[in-house]
């Protein structure tokens, strides 16, 4: 009898541990799948990609039909990652948001809360001791890897001129480099633009 009780209790304990482990791990697994999907479009780590407006019948990163979205997967394990942000001059909602590997949205700044129309966002992992300058927004990521999204609301998705304007803004928001504050963003913007599909 005590032997049976032992096995029942062991099985129950195992079930609880496995269940909790699966629930804990699931968001991280989702991030892994999302990152794999995003990397297909962005091309590589620490680069932003763009797939156009969401439409029916096409797998898209976002199901929101009224935003243009650039996306990428960052890896701050080998040093801070710098993103040169360009905020649109119009009153369209714009935001850049960072998602940790457990899918938490740990940072977001929008066009009204951004420090200026052009600024650098520097993502560091916990271990890094990065001293930012005044023009930089330094964010400590809870995980070394994560997902970055840039959203701009399109006021009328049937207006190709507006779409072209917003896509131009997205192209100016680029991952410039790992840290290296001395690099010239403008040169790198031109180079990186081609990969922002």
């Amino acid at each position: 009898m005590s032997g049976t009780l032992y096995w029942v209790l062991l099985t129950l304990a195992l079930a609880v541990v496995l269940h909790l482990a699966a629930i804990w791990y699931f968001p991280r697994m989702v991030s892994r799948f999302s990152a794999r999907k995003l990397l297909k479009f962005a091309g590589r780590w620490n680069t932003l990609g763009y797939r156009g407006l969401a439409t029916a019948g096409r797998r898209s990163l976002t199901t929101n039909p009224d935003v243009v979205t650039a996306f990428g997967v960052y890896d701050a394990s080998r040093g801070p990652v710098r993103i040169a942000c360009a905020v649109p001059p119009w009153d369209n909602y714009w935001s850049i948001s960072l998602f940790a590997w457990d899918t938490d949205n740990f940072f977001v700044v929008n066009d009204r809360t951004a420090r200026s129309k052009k600024f650098d966002l520097v993502i560091t992992s916990r271990k890094d001791q990065y001293q930012g300058s005044e023009d930089e927004e330094v964010v400590v990521s809870p995980s070394k890897k994560g997902i970055v999204l840039v959203r701009i609301v399109i006021q009328d998705r049937d207006d190709p001129a507006e779409l072209a304007r917003l896509e131009e803004v997205l192209r100016k928001t680029v991952v410039v480099s790992r840290a290296a504050p001395s690099q010239s963003p403008s040169r790198l913007i031109a180079r990186e633009t081609q990969s922002v599909g």
């Binding site: 989702v30 999302s34 990163l61 976002t62 948001s97 457990d102 899918t103 997902i147």
Partner: peptide, 17 residues
């Protein structure tokens, strides 16, 4: 909550946003 959100509301913004 995090697991549910990861499944049904991935990449959602913070509530204040």
């Amino acid at each position: 909550s995090r697991a549910f959100a990861a499944r049904h509301e991935p990449l959602g913004l913070q509530r204040s946003e």
